[in-house]
Design a protein around this nucleic acid. Sequence first.
DNA 1: ATGTCACAAACTTTGTGA
Length: 256
Amino acid sequence: MRLATWNVNSVKARLPRLLEWLGETKPDIVCLQETKCAALAFPAAEVGELGYVTAAHGDGRWNGVAVLSKVGMSDVALGFPGEPAYEGVRESRAVGATCGGLRIWSLYAPNGRTLDSPHYAYKLEWFAAYRAALADELGQPLVACGDFNVAPTDDDVWDPALFAGSTHVTPAERGELAELRALGLHDVVPTPMKGPHPYMYWDYRAGMFHQNKGMRIDLVYASTDVADRVRSAYVDREARKGKGPSDHAPIVVDLI
DNA sequence: ATGTCACAAACTTTGTGA
């Protein structure tokens, strides 16, 4: 069983690359984030030709998440109970589905913007609400993965000093990850394709990818039974190269 | 590091978000 998660930064803009990558990598289950696509506009027919069924949750211009599966799909959940709204709008940041005997969540956590922004408070509330909702789903093989917009440790950013006073690295944000792990979830850390750090996000600007100034903010959190089945996990940095990439690379996890 | 990219409306340029 091969599982993947990828923040594609617009599924429409990335569609040729996504289809090529799916054909080469052949994951059984794929979690996508930042599809930036209304649910009805998702290219389900195109991925369908490769054998995937789709669960898409989308607003249109911003956010948007999806699960693709070749191994069946049931119990699709668009968002989760108690999911908070931002400025009155419940955004498309979580989609759940049961595929191939696994409970899967594709997550796109709020960015937070700045520490004094209402978006930061919303980010922390969103994590707490997700954790509460997930408590009802424990006891089955489960994977919660996607763009968490939090670097778990200082080793997960290229220069921790630059992040002083910024989002993504605060004790409060890292505390939310710790609370998720306290539910019995395990951080499946992928192997980097190059260099010592399993970064999968590099800003488009300033040659950050070339200099490997990246971050590990996309995470795979797996229940114990699933974590015990992990044979390998890697960051596919090849997918970040070339013309028209996302600013994130995919993570690929192989389960026994 | 603030050097790019994607989107949509104000639509051949700008504002927003990341």
